[in-house]
Structure formats: C-alpha cells, structure tokens
Simulated scan of single mutants.
Amino acid sequence: MTIGRGLKWALVAQVVLAVFLVIADIDRSWIPRVGSQPPLPSGPVSPGDQVRRYDPSRPHPEFTDRPDRPPIDLPSEFPARLEFSMVDAADDTRVLLLNGPINSGDSERFTNYLAGMNTPPETVALNSPGGVVSEALSIGRGLREAEANTIMLPGMICLSSCPYMFAAGQNRHVSRTAALGLHQHYYETPGYMPVFLAVEGIQYGQGQTLEYLIEMGVNPGLMVYSLNTPPEEIYLLVEEELLQTQLATEMIE
C-alpha cells in the first residue's frame, strides 16, 4: 500500500468515525418513538402520584398547590439566567432571592455578589427550574460557607439541580405549597467524546453530587428519586420524603 492510498483510507476512516459520532450525538427527541406515551397527570401531587412533565420555562407549573400568590412579587417569566436580589418576604423579613435557571458562570457571579454585600444574607429563598449541576454545587458551597439558611416560600419551585443549592442551608424550611423536584441530570461531556468516556464522566458527576449531599448533611439516598426519573419528567418530593432525606429540616405553612 502506497503512502497516498494509506492517507486516503485514513481520511475515509475519520469521515466514517465523524458521521458515527454525529449520529450518536443526535438528540433522542429526534428519534421517533414506537407507540404512544401515556399522558402524565397534572395538578398538585400526592404520595404515589408525584411524576409530572418537566417544563423549565414555566415559573408557576400546575403541580404547585398555590392558594395565593407567592409572598414575593415575581415576574411572569423566568429571567435568562440566575438573578440575585434582596427582597422583602413575609413579616417584613429581608431575604436573598435566587430566581431563574442556573447557567455556566453563575457560581462565579454569585461569589462576586456575596463578596459585594456588607453582611452575608441570613436567609436565601429559591425559585429556579434548575440547570447546570456543577454550578449548583458550587453556589451551594458558597451558601454553606456564608452560613445562610435556605427557604422555599409558598408557590415557589426548586427543580432539577436547584435542590442541591437548597441543601446547602444550615436550616432548610419548605412551605407545604412549594415544590421541590428531581430528575436525571445531564453532565457536561463533549459531543465528540467516545461513549465509554462519556459514561465515565457521568458516573464521576454523580459521585461528586453524592459527596456533596453527604457534605451538606443530606441523606444521599435522595439521589434515588433523580436517577429513576427521566430528564423530561420531574419527581416532586412530598413532605415525608423531604424530612426523611433531611433535605428539609422543617416544613412550614
């Protein structure tokens, strides 16, 4: 075989490999599913009926049992990324509100925000559909370092990776009309990475999350609910699960 022919076949092999990796990286939502999927229920959850469709664009999903508006005036849509602001909650209590999806770079922004405060916040309220897991863990460690408490106020949501930020509170109060939910996570793995390396990266990310939960004093068994729930769905935790896993230290009205 000549050098020219060898280079030609090497090029062909690279093209075939590239095509294979592109096909492997196609979002599974493009692949038609055989048979119809039964529709998920809507409305507030109850024990044994806790899986709902995950829609990160909706700040007020149907599964939140909201007799009233949240005590904080929230916009009708989520911002483009996580926002931080001091707001008045019930009984003229000032809290630091984290509102919106968690994107790359938000942990650094949050660190800078905390550094610019005259005094660390005593209580942090959350309202987020989740986002990048590693950013949520980093923000959570910043909250724990600041010795802040976390709270879920009535009518607010904390989904996907958001509960890991919530887990960082010294005391963690959850309103019975708030919603905390988990599902399988996506970890940052390059699209060109071979499958076995991508799986290794996912397992490493899950290990980091388990280590984080133990660090925060939360039962790592909490991960069972996320690992068993597809990413297009969300598993809403009920009061017993919140307390048993120690994700919540106290339920409030």
Results as ranks from 00 to 15, higher is better:
Arg94Val: 11
Asn99Gln: 04
Arg94Tyr: 05
Ala125Asn: 09
Ser128Thr: 14
Met156Asn: 08
Ser128Leu: 12
Cys162Gln: 08
Gly131Glu: 00
Tyr113His: 15
Asn103Glu: 13
Leu114Ile: 03
Val174Lys: 01
Arg141Cys: 06
Val95Leu: 14
Ile151Lys: 02
His185Ala: 05
Asn118Leu: 05
Glu145Cys: 01
Leu143Ile: 15
Ile151Cys: 01
Ser134Thr: 12
Glu108Cys: 03
Arg94Ile: 07
Phe84Met: 14
Glu188Ile: 06
Pro163Asn: 08
Val124Ile: 15
Met86Trp: 07
Phe110His: 06
Glu122Met: 07
His173Cys: 00
Pro129Phe: 00
Arg144Gln: 15
Gly130Ala: 04
Ile151Met: 02
His183Ala: 01
Thr177Lys: 09
Asn103Arg: 13
Ala90Ile: 01
Pro163Arg: 10
Val124Trp: 08
Gly155Gln: 12
Tyr187Trp: 08
Arg144Pro: 08
His173Tyr: 05
Ala136His: 11
Glu188Asp: 08
Leu153Arg: 09
Ala89Val: 06
Ala178Phe: 12
Gln184Cys: 07
Ser128His: 10
Pro163Glu: 07
Met86Pro: 01
Ser107Ile: 05
Ala115Pro: 04
Tyr186Thr: 10
Leu159Asn: 15
Leu98Gln: 05
Thr111Asp: 08
Leu137Glu: 04
Ala115Thr: 14
Glu145Lys: 14
Arg144Ile: 04
Tyr113Gly: 04
Thr150His: 11
Met86Arg: 14
Thr123Ser: 09
His185Ile: 03
Glu188Thr: 04
Gln184Met: 05
Leu126Phe: 14
Val133Gly: 03
Arg94Gln: 15
Glu122Leu: 08
Asn171Tyr: 06
Asn99Met: 00
Ala115Phe: 12
Arg141His: 11
Phe166Arg: 15
Asn99Gly: 00
Gly181Gln: 09
Tyr186Ala: 07
Leu126Asn: 05
Ile102Ser: 03
Leu114Pro: 00
